[in-house]
Design a protein around this nucleic acid. Structure first.
Lengths: 198, 198
DNA sequence: GTCTATATTGCGATAGAC
DNA sequence: GTCTATCGCAATATAGAC
């Protein structure tokens, strides 16, 4: 462990802002969770908003590295879709709170939104280009609308994590089927977009 | 129009709670948006929390009617998947804020969560049964995991609305392609789950 | 049924001791 | 670098006039 007050505040902020949203968390609650003093939030981060910005920045830095590692490899369209799915799984597994922040910013943008938008756009363009290439190469159905095909795969992959808290209430003791879901969803998707009668 | 104070508060609460979240909206802001007085929130709803509960109740009542109308029809598995997609489109079109409340409750359940959970469970079981029947009838692939197939279709359909606010920032002037997206996504999904070599 | 006025609590930020 | 104490303000709720 060995965390100083600044690190403990960042950790507490990540958890609490993700769980309850920015407005619902007070600096008193934050400082108690971090076992430190509320005045240190201003000292280190310039206030509650500054702490929130620091939390977001750290979250999305890790996303960026995942994207970059996928982009630089030379892969076929199908392999790229698979790499995207694996990247989503990796990102959400490494960082279970990121989907909350992403959605919070969708719904109610803060100044940090611009940076997030840039990340999302990179992913969108990567997928869009992948679909187009798959069509051009004759591997994907020619009647595919690329923008819609992108939304379809992104929805299949991200909704799994979005719906996680709710699923825990009514699905039989979901162990950790994450990898299996991604495999199954990929099969449905690739089967749905590729040409048949091969 | 002809709205009394109670109706105006309910309308203002729906918009503001959806846009900013429960904690980020004050009763002053609410009463100003409704062009009335903050004390009326307590008078009619017993307080800010009561107004929020009333907003949620009204939102999910409309979802229930959509589900019920789909369930009672006699449809084949493929037709039921199509009816589900149409139902999602209808519900979100009639009520653009519902996805926000749904997600807010996923992330941070309030006492209203129990009722929402019941609605979601109904939808889940409808889809699960549909997939199973499709497999039994030999229309869907036998190696399909029903739970995963449900999540895949729910993700494709709901993520479209979840991502709407963000898409507006980087997609070329999305007109209203909603119906077209649903058609395209359905084609991918059904193509992905049904048996081939027919 | 709707308003004004106000009681009370909790908020975020900061001054200043150590 | 971390604490205590406190300031000023905005929050929700309510009492009471009309």
């Amino acid at each position: 462990m060995e965390m100083d007050a600044q690190e403990k505040l960042l950790a507490a902020g990540t958890r609490l802002f993700a769980q309850k949203g920015f407005a619902a968390v007070s600096i008193r609650e934050l400082s108690q969770a971090a076992e430190t003093n509320s005045s240190l939030i201003s000292y280190y981060f310039g206030g509650k908003e500054g702490l929130y910005a620091a939390v977001l920045e750290k979250q999305f830095a890790s996303v960026d590295s995942v994207i970059a590692s996928v982009r630089e490899r030379h892969l076929s369209p199908v392999e790229r879709i698979e790499a995207y799915a694996q990247g989503v799984l990796t990102a959400h597994t490494q960082n279970p709170y990121i989907i909350r922040f992403l959605y919070s910013e969708f719904a109610n943008p803060t100044p940090a939104f611009e940076a997030i938008q840039k990340e999302v756009r990179k992913i969108y363009e990567f997928l869009h280009q992948t679909i187009n290439e798959g069509i051009t190469r004759g591997q994907f159905r020619a009647d595919l609308n690329p923008a819609h095909a992108v939304l379809a795969i992104a929805g299949m992959m991200n909704f799994y994590f979005i719906s996680r808290p709710l699923r825990r209430y009514f699905l039989p003791a979901e162990g950790e089927h994450d990898a299996q879901y991604f495999e199954d969803a990929l099969k449905i998707y690739l089967n749905g977009v590729t040409k048949h009668g091969d």
